[in-house]
């Protein structure tokens, strides 16, 4: 069939550039093949990536008619609208030329942050097949970037290490029973922009074409990190304080004491006297009292608080055993 392929050509300075091409393609073949056909037959200056054509290399990610896709996985007939397909850069990336973007900054640098190779000390622990299944899951990742593309945090903070790197860098290594450096990895991952900056919005899981569920994996990583007693990196104390304050509150009364949570996290009276905490939180706290949002009445325990405290005690004991 005849399809008009339109390209949104960002950062292309060529004054003669064309952005619309009619190609004859088999509707059963992929959008990526249609893109390649245009480049090979009509305009060799078109810039986009992509090599394998079967969704293994993850290099061709773009928007096709407004959908964020790996275009080699989408058939022409499923994408075409009014005989046309518009190809455009994905969001959250720095354009280089046309549909080609700075993938190093977007993903590879972040991946490398996690020292994504195993650290072994020569002894091979006994491993069961199912122990390696999480590793296989992470390695299924094709670095297509659709999770980072849809990431709520990267949307506002380009430096956030993001679901792809957390999956293929951190999850892949820490879940591998052969790795000997897990705790140190969690300490490094706990720095700002890392593991604790994720807001668990589940976007990543929704976007991954391969069912890898990066958000799940990130939550799983947090559980593992907590179990090893690492609740954030050394330079990122707020994450750990927040966790501890939250846990203390629920442990004590069965539910959340928001006043205590804020005070402990920010180091406010009666738990501390942090000036920056006061500056940022006091106006809000006073307003809350004025508006009747924060009550001054004491926080009462839930009826089941004792049972809940027992749950904490048991899990914390198992973490101690794990560490020892």
């Amino acid at each position: 069939m005849q399809v008009t392929m339109k390209f949104v050509r960002t950062k292309n300075e060529d004054p003669d550039q064309r952005d619309s091409f009619v190609v004859d393609v088999d509707p059963e073949t992929s959008v990526f093949e249609a893109m390649s056909k245009v480049r090979e037959e009509q305009d060799g200056s078109l810039a986009f990536r992509g090599t394998c054509n079967t969704g293994f290399c993850g290099d061709c990610t773009c928007q096709a008619n407004g959908k964020r896709v790996v275009p080699c996985l989408v058939k022409v007939k499923d994408s075409v609208k009014e005989d046309a397909i518009e190809i455009k850069l994905i969001r959250n990336v720095a354009p280089v030329k046309d549909v080609l973007y700075d993938v190093d900054q977007f993903m590879w640098k972040k991946y490398k942050y996690f020292r994504p190779w195993l650290e072994t000390n020569g002894t091979a622990p006994a491993v069961k097949d199912e122990d390696l299944e999480p590793v296989r899951l992470a390695m299924r990742c094709t670095v297509c970037g659709l999770c980072d593309e849809g990431c709520t945090v990267i949307d506002v903070d380009k430096e956030f290490l993001g679901p792809m790197a957390l999956t293929k860098g951190l999850y892949r290594t820490t879940k591998d029973p052969r790795d000997q450096d897990t705790k140190q990895r969690f300490i490094e991952a706990g720095e700002k922009k890392g593991l604790w900056d994720c807001v668990h919005c589940w976007e990543a899981s929704e976007h991954c074409p391969w069912g890898i569920n990066p958000t799940h994996l990130i939550m799983d990583l947090r559980d593992d990190s907590i179990a090893l007693g690492v609740k954030s990196g050394k330079g990122n104390p707020m994450a750990a304080r927040h966790y501890n304050a939250f846990a203390d509150s629920v442990k004590k009364s069965g539910w959340l004491n928001e006043r205590m949570l804020a005070s402990k996290t920010y180091g406010l009276p009666p738990y501390g006297l942090s000036l920056s905490g006061m500056m940022s939180q006091m106006p809000i706290a006073l307003k809350a009292i004025r508006k009747g949002k924060a009550s001054l009445r004491p926080h009462k325990s839930r009826p089941g608080a004792r049972q809940i405290a027992k749950i904490f005690a048991k899990v914390e004991q198992s973490h101690k055993n794990k560490k020892a």
């Binding site: 190779w117 195993l118 072994t120 091979a124 006994a126 491993v127 069961k128 097949d129 390696l132 590793v135 296989r136 390695m139 591998d176 052969r178 790795d179």
Partner: peptide
Amino acid sequence: YNLGVPFNLDPQGDVA
């Protein structure tokens, strides 16, 4: 395997 390839293993834990 020792470098980190998660080969499928048999029930004895050897490479399947």
